[in-house]
Computed example of a mutant assay.
Amino acid sequence: MRMVTLSVTEKVGTNGAVGQSLQIKPGDSATVKLAGQLFASGHIHERQVAYDANNHSVRVTFASQVQKAVRQSIPLKDGEFKNYSFQAIANKVLAPVGVVLKALNPPAGWEKPFKYVNIEPDETPFSLLSRLSKYRGVWLRDDKNGGLVAQGNADKKPAAEFVEGRNILSASCLAQNAPDTTVEVTGQQRGDDNSTPAKNRGAFSGKADSSGSNFTTYKRTQADIPADRDDLKQAAGYCQLLSLSQQVTVRIVYQGWLLSSGNLPEVFDQISIDSPMLLLKTSDLQIAEVTFTQDQAGTRTTLIAQKWLTSPFGVQGAAPEQTDAQKATSTVITPGAPIVTGPGGLAGHI
């Protein structure tokens, strides 16, 4: 969720009676604009006042409307959903906290109903939707209007280009082996009068393998809901994508808040970077985190970008052209797209 901490000024009331007429107080509805553009909608979460002989300061913290979905337990008497889609479950659990879910480029079949979903004790709407999202191939984030977004594939076109010596104040890059190159998710089904425990236990599994790596690890996890083969394939690919995205992590600091497009950067925006000092020239990075700052040094933006965050089909099939320095000192990272397999050796791409 979007959080903003800022120092503000307030007029002191008669005889210093500030507390009698606070201009900004916890619980107030608020919006935040950066460079004249709406950044977040929500409420004032905290207010802190301090003073000494020489200074008086007021600092407030703003939280996105989505904070209510992150902190509040689901207020439902019925703790089970039968044959509800992801969107239908989201509508049910988010309505009491005033948050709306919208889908952006969701994958095909994401509206497939879940057979059974049980709410865990004290579970929040966000934690419930987060654990279900891996079975539908969507990623959760908030938006500027205080809503929750179920993100599918992101736009392949870079939202901004960063070039060393032109618009990068500082940068760093961490390259490492993916923690898990093979992920398998196993699951079981609910029993009925026509099945046996042996048939239901470990009935299905989904597996995702990454090719093109000289370092392999195997991770096996258990599904937390009754799931069929397709659900488990999706979950395996989702978990592996989390691992593959850690192959390359780049931190970029630039002057100002806006991108060259004139827009504020958003999580999942695709960017390109050309930096011989980092031995990196690529256009398949996606923004994972954005931090805006303003102080005596001016306005700055820090981006954390990673190799993949959404579907690996967003990665270019051909290696990007490199500079002469890069060709002499580096090896292009070109991992293949995950290959998903299920029981009986069935294979297909996610």
Results as ranks from 00 to 15, higher is better:
Met1Gly: 15
Thr5Lys: 03
Thr5Met: 00
Thr5His: 00
Lys11Gln: 10
Asn15Met: 11
Ala17Tyr: 05
Pro26Val: 14
Val32Tyr: 00
Leu34Ser: 02
Ser41Asn: 09
Ala53Asp: 10
Asn54Met: 05
Ser57Arg: 02
Val58Ser: 10
Arg59Trp: 02
Ser64Leu: 00
Gln65Leu: 09
Lys82Glu: 13
Asn83Ser: 08
Phe86Thr: 12
Gly98Pro: 14
Val99Lys: 04
Val100Leu: 09
Ala103Leu: 15
Ala108Asn: 13
Lys115Cys: 00
Tyr116Ala: 06
Pro121Ile: 14
Pro121Tyr: 05
Asp122Phe: 14
Glu123Asn: 08
Phe126Met: 12
Arg131Phe: 14
Leu132Pro: 09
Ser133Val: 14
Trp139Asp: 02
Trp139Gln: 03
Asp143Ile: 06
Leu148Gln: 05
Ala150Pro: 01
Gly152Ser: 03
Asn153Cys: 01
Lys156Arg: 06
Pro158Phe: 02
Pro158Asp: 01
Phe162Met: 08
Gly165Val: 10
Cys173Trp: 07
Ala175Cys: 14
Gln189Ala: 11
Asn194His: 11
Ser195Val: 11
Gly202Asn: 12
Ala203Leu: 04
Ala203Arg: 06
Phe204Gly: 04
Ser211Cys: 03
Ser211Val: 13
Ser213Gln: 11
Phe215Gly: 08
Thr221Tyr: 06
Ala223Tyr: 07
Asp228Ala: 07
Asp228Met: 04
Asp230Trp: 09
Asp231Gln: 06
Lys233His: 06
Gln234Ile: 14
Gln240Phe: 14
Thr249Leu: 02
Thr249Glu: 13
Thr249Arg: 03
Val250Gly: 01
Arg251Pro: 00
Ile252Thr: 09
Val253Met: 04
Ser261Lys: 05
Leu264Met: 08
Pro265Lys: 04
Phe268Pro: 01
Asp269Glu: 08
Ser272Pro: 13
Met277Ala: 15
Leu279Asp: 05
Lys281Ser: 15
Leu285Ile: 03
Gln286Pro: 01
Glu289Asp: 15
Thr301Tyr: 00
Ile304Gly: 02
Trp308Ala: 04
Pro312Ser: 05
Phe313Asp: 12
Gln316Pro: 02
Gly317Ser: 12
Gly317Lys: 07
Ala319Phe: 04
Ala328Glu: 09
Thr329Phe: 11
Thr329Met: 06
Ser330Arg: 02
Ile339Pro: 00
Ile339Leu: 15
Thr341Cys: 06
Gly344Glu: 10
Gly345Arg: 10
